[in-house]
Nucleic acid binder design. Sequence first.
DNA 1: CCGCCACATTGACGTTCATAAATACGTTTG
DNA 2: CAAACGTATTTATGAACGTCAATGTGGCGG
Lengths: 127, 127
Amino acid sequence: MAVSTDESIRTRDGTIARRQGARPCCADVPAAMEDVRRAPLDRQRALLSALADPTRLEMVHLLCRAGELCVCDFTAAFDLGQPTVSHHLRILREAGIVTCRKAGQWVYCAVDRAALKWLVGSLLEIV
Amino acid sequence: MAVSTDESIRTRDGTIARRQGARPCCADVPAAMEDVRRAPLDRQRALLSALADPTRLEMVHLLCRAGELCVCDFTAAFDLGQPTVSHHLRILREAGIVTCRKAGQWVYCAVDRAALKWLVGSLLEIV
DNA sequence: CCGCCACATTGACGTTCATAAATACGTTTG
DNA sequence: CAAACGTATTTATGAACGTCAATGTGGCGG
């Protein structure tokens, strides 16, 4: 593959951008990638994907307003089977977004605000 | 179904909670649901699900640090086929998270910080 | 004008996920 | 102890998603 010398390209606004080689863009970005990988990307993604489902997001909204709800409250509110509700609550619990306490035969759930605040903070860092 | 009168239940910490009827929890929450549905849940969910994918989240991270990148930068950085990268960028673009400008035969992408800030603000509202 | 390049689109494939039915578990009540 | 209730788990199914190969599109250079 032939490699030409530097060349200048015209950008949309008419300015001249100086670039190197035959492939003006596609500059190496391994250094930046290192920083990216070091970031707590996994936890961020776990929280985001737990919240990305419409049912679970509505659950969190409802729970934030109600403060504390038991599982049967969700089954009554969401027109979903009890196993499905339990499934979603498990995902939210494993993501650290909700905490559950057992009282008698009921399980009361609440939002872990610290987790949501951490997510917000981590998003603010990259903006 | 028989409905009993008020009854008291024992909670985990030993306190007595007074509840009504045969089904102590599962109180009606339609009023709260109304408020929830009125909230901009859809946009919130769209942004969250766009960010929930590990590749797309890393793209946004990288893009926030780099400021502006063309599509071939991503194909070089992510070890993915060009159609796959294009697919992810389309989702991010349709979600309003990234904006694209065409310069020559390259397409340069940048993060719409306002969108991310809106998401952060909407999350802070419910916490 | 023809070939190359960056990027977008289409179609297909394998995987993941949400949901429901059936079942199991632990607690309360009679 | 047995029945009833709230909740968790298992299993199966259909839909959605990420990925790739092939192809299409538009701009740039020889």
